[in-house]
Nucleic acid binder design. Structure first.
Lengths: 365, 365
DNA sequence: TTGAAAGCGATACCAG
DNA sequence: CTGGTATCGCTTTCAA
């Protein structure tokens, strides 16, 4: 195995100059198809891998990358952005420049933000494609302009995106079911709430939950899911009437961030005490609910790690051209009273140094 | 804020040469204390940060790092090593060279391996200090020779080690307790098995388990822990007699890898069916036990991630001199039937591409 | 279409 | 003790 293989080596082997080799390797204009083919071939044979240090050293151009995400009602998206920023500045501020385009709601500004990023000619985009159909045209356009796009949290299939980073929805759903089954000792009625069955991510969680329950805990009866369409009042109202109509309900699995209205409905219906509630994600308002035991467990989707990973993939592609696995799935973390503190300590980086009685570290959770 | 600040900038500001600046910055001999002080001061003022790309480019010396770990009976240490190797070669093979010094048992060869590494003059060491007292002298020696040492899995206090990477034992113990409490609905007798209360890591897990149980599930009675001293037959024998003497036992938390003897004892005593068993780590022989439901949940200590993280910390220190947080703690993953498949798919990297019906990705779990 | 050459910032020499 | 300089591999101009 050759220890190295530089531009010079391949230029030397062909008796041409490194300038030409460089142009050939980068699809720059002004290289005859013939030389290009030969360069490519030799590069292949020699196992040429660009030396990143040298590349970075000689071209100090900044990579511009656009981060298009939701404002969000909980801290989820703040954490995603924090993860991205953290990873970006760990590379040293001089090599990359991040432009945040944050839009207010599921349907407000998403398309515009993406269009802007493309037109601004950024080098890459990290985005949350909440409405993949709407974004599809733009994403294709980005793909044809060779602007790599990495999706976070949810996928946008058939759009030519470089990669998607998300938690494994099947894992989340199955884990929730397994816990629920154990908590209830295999007995009782259980409800799932979600945003909309039309959203792939939610449907997947529901089905995974359903299947695991069916396979391992046949004694548990699963009700039809409640769809809240991301509207808090709808979640509250629907749950309240269901809780009143079904007082014998023993468990609820909230697949979205909208757990508070569900909890409130249960509280108002007076059934919270005999309900095992499993939620999704972690945000300040949920903390007391976990502490009090109202929420038995929550499935934390590790927003910071998602952001960090998305950035890494994009950066590696941009700087080295290597595209690793295109579907990066994370294992969600399970948070209960017992380990809640651990996660809370990591939430805000600023606090880390101060409350140093038990120093906790740099892993982005 | 200054966009850069190079060696030249600071040399220029002082009217000296970059060679001198370089030497001053690196504590090399042959610089007058006076110049050195001035260089340091200006460097400080200018916010000088070495350019890693340049450094790496100009000195293509390989870093040699020694990885001293146990052979191990389960796959834990194989995974740790795999994580290290993976991360190392993701940097490109040309920059780092890893020497594995793997010793057979807890007390066999650990000291020698460390001594060898130090004497071989490696640039850094990643080690599992199973017997910190014995290693202490050598670790101090390493510290005084400026060889950074990173501990994995368990800490070696007061040894001058650069950092420790481990799971949070308190989190593991508390989480296990919380699950146990929920699974048992707050009732019953529970047992903990561990290797030795003298080992900090195990004592911590036990106490965390105890405290959480006490705080949230006062109805559960915790028996005295069983210490198996890492001997399988001892674990089996002690458990068997306890299970026979206490047939009403309802839960067991195994804090070490030695869960099989415990399971076998329970099976042989005929109590497995009415026992909630929570184990630690994940290895092939445990898989069927989880599938069958004999093990309700296992707390996975993410060996691959531990290895990977240890390597990163060491490498960053070696290449940039930056020492981040010295205690890097990871959140353990909870594995149950519902998400077992997910983790199994990641175990062997080679399988990943082949069973590609649902491609899974590069996060080291 | 190609070659030649000037850097990028740090390291590690060799003179003085 | 200190200054000067070749070098690392690549990008990017400027000529040819």
């Amino acid at each position: 195995m050759k220890p190295k293989a530089t531009l010079f080596d391949i230029a030397d082997a062909l008796g041409i100059s490194i300038g030409t080799v460089h142009r050939a390797l980068h699809n720059h204009h002004g290289v005859s198809v013939e030389t290009k083919a030969r360069v490519l071939e030799v590069a292949q044979k020699l196992g040429y891998r660009p030396n990143l240090a040298a590349r970075y050293l000689s071209s100090r151009r900044k990579l511009r990358i656009s981060v298009n995400t939701l404002k969000g009602t909980t801290s989820f998206w703040d954490e995603v952005r924090a993860g991205i920023e953290e990873e970006a500045k760990s590379l040293g501020m001089e090599s990359v420049e991040i432009e945040f385009r944050t839009y207010p709601g599921l349907d407000e500004g998403e398309e515009e933000a993406f269009a802007q990023a493309v037109q601004a000619g950024v080098d890459g985009i990290i985005t949350y494609p909440s409405r993949p159909e709407k974004l599809k045209a733009w994403m294709r356009k980005a793909a044809s302009s060779r602007i790599p796009v990495v999706c976070v949290a949810t996928d946008a299939p058939e759009t030519g995106r470089l990669a998607v980073v998300s938690v494994d929805t099947l894992v989340s759903g199955s884990l929730a079911a397994d816990l629920m089954g154990r908590f209830l000792k295999g007995q009782g009625k259980v409800l799932v709430t979600l945003s909309d069955m039309a959203i792939l991510e939610h449907a997947e969680k529901f089905h995974a939950f359903q299947n695991t329950l069916h396979d391992y805990y046949p004694g548990i009866q699963l009700l039809d899911p409640i769809q809240d369409h991301d509207v808090e009042s709808e979640a509250y109202a629907k749950c309240l009437s269901l809780f009143r109509a079904t007082p014998e309900l023993s468990g609820v699995y909230v697949t979205t961030e909208a757990s508070l209205p569900v909890l409130n409905a249960a509280r108002d219906a007076g059934v919270l005490g005999n309900l095992i509630v499993i939620t999704t994600d972690l945000f300040p308002a949920l903390v007391p609910e976990i502490h009090s035991g109202a929420v038995a467990a929550t499935i934390y989707q590790r927003p910071r790690t998602q952001g960090l990973t998305a950035f890494r993939v994009l950066y590696e592609y941009l700087s080295e051209g290597k595209s690793s696995s295109s579907q990066l799935t994370l294992a969600p973390h399970l948070v209960m009273r017992g380990n809640l503190e651990f996660f809370l300590q990591r939430e805000s980086l600023e606090l880390r140094e101060q409350k140093a009685h038990r120093p906790v570290a740099a892993e982005a959770v």
